[in-house]
């Protein structure tokens, strides 16, 4: 049997086998290639999808950032406004509080002024009876505690009714004003008080003052009135205005009272008038 040998002596059967193997390999490679292409297109498509998604997300994020920045600006301006309003309100509250305090002061000053007006005599500008009583009560209490003497001087303008009838009420008023000023000027110490006690009656409170001290003051008052030389044609005792004066002194005790001292002084004034006027009558009520 003849062998299947090519003209050049090539083994054909092994060649065929090799070709078959190569064909199979090509088929396998083609399959691999198709698979790879499939994978590549899948990956590319996937990449595109992801890229689109990323792009969209990015756009969304940028919008969100812009919105947040806008919101932040709005909030910041709102915060600034609130901060300004808070500052304003703090100043307003402070203003109102301080205003309230200053109004208190203003009221109390007016109250003090009104109190002083209520305690002073409109004509003579020295204390009136109300001011006199209040000061006497106050000083009595102080002297009661310190056990020091307190003196009262009561003065009455001699024949004042005749003066008024003769010179007229306006001259009478001027006369009272001059006497008040002279009385006021005759008192030296801070606790002393001059007052118009009634129509033509004047008074002085002298705390921490003995009878001797009070007598000196009474003489000073008498001298000051004499120096005024207010003519009094109708006076039955003197060509000028004169005063009858009562002076009483005591060291306050719980048994005594301001009114009892006042009553005593009034009696002395009455005595001075009864004994001929233009004189000083005095008494020390104590041991």
């Amino acid at each position: 049997m003849a062998e299947d040998i090519s003209p050049k002596g090539v083994d054909m059967s092994s060649l065929l086998a090799e070709i078959t193997a190569l064909k199979q390999e090509i088929i396998a490679l083609k399959r691999d290639n198709e698979d790879l292409q499939m994978a590549m297109s899948t990956i590319a498509e996937h990449g595109d999808t992801i890229e689109t998604q990323l792009y969209e997300t990015n756009i969304k994020l940028q919008t969100e950032v812009a919105e947040r920045q806008r919101a932040q600006t709005v909030l910041q301006s709102l915060l600034d406004m609130l901060y300004r309003e808070k500052g304003d309100l703090e100043v307003i509250v402070e203003t109102i509080v301080e205003h309230g305090d200053i109004l208190d002061t203003q009221w109390s000053q007016q109250l003090r002024k009104a109190d002083m007006l209520a305690a002073s005599d409109g004509l003579t500008q020295i204390s009136n009876r109300r001011g006199f009583d209040a000061h006497l009560d106050h000083q009595w209490a102080l002297m009661l505690r310190s056990q020091e003497p307190i003196s009262i001087i009561l003065c009455d303008v001699d024949y004042f009714k005749l003066f008024n009838d003769y010179y007229g009420h306006l001259a009478g008023d001027d006369c009272l004003k001059s006497i008040a000023q002279a009385l006021h000027a005759s008192l030296a110490r801070p606790g002393d008080l001059a007052a118009r006690y009634g129509g033509e009656e004047f008074a002085a409170i002298l705390p921490e003052t003995s009878l001797n001290g009070a007598l000196k003051v009474a003489e000073r008052i008498q001298g000051a009135i004499a120096q005024l030389q207010i003519p009094h044609e109708r006076s039955l005792i003197h060509p000028y205005i004169t005063l009858s004066i009562g002076v009483a002194c005591t060291v306050p005790s719980y048994e005594g009272s301001p009114s009892s001292l006042l009553e005593k002084t009034d009696q002395l004034l009455y005595l001075a008038k009864a004994k001929g006027r233009n004189q000083i009558r005095h008494h020390f009520d104590g041991e």
């Binding site: 100043v91 402070e94 203003t95 301080e98 205003h99 200053i102 109004l103 203003q106």
Partner: peptide, 15 residues
């Protein structure tokens, strides 16, 4: 001469 004005009006200047 009006006490409250001397104080409160200055506070308004702060506003």
């Amino acid at each position: 001469k009006i006490l409250w004005q001397t104080k409160s009006l200055k506070n308004l200047q702060r506003l």
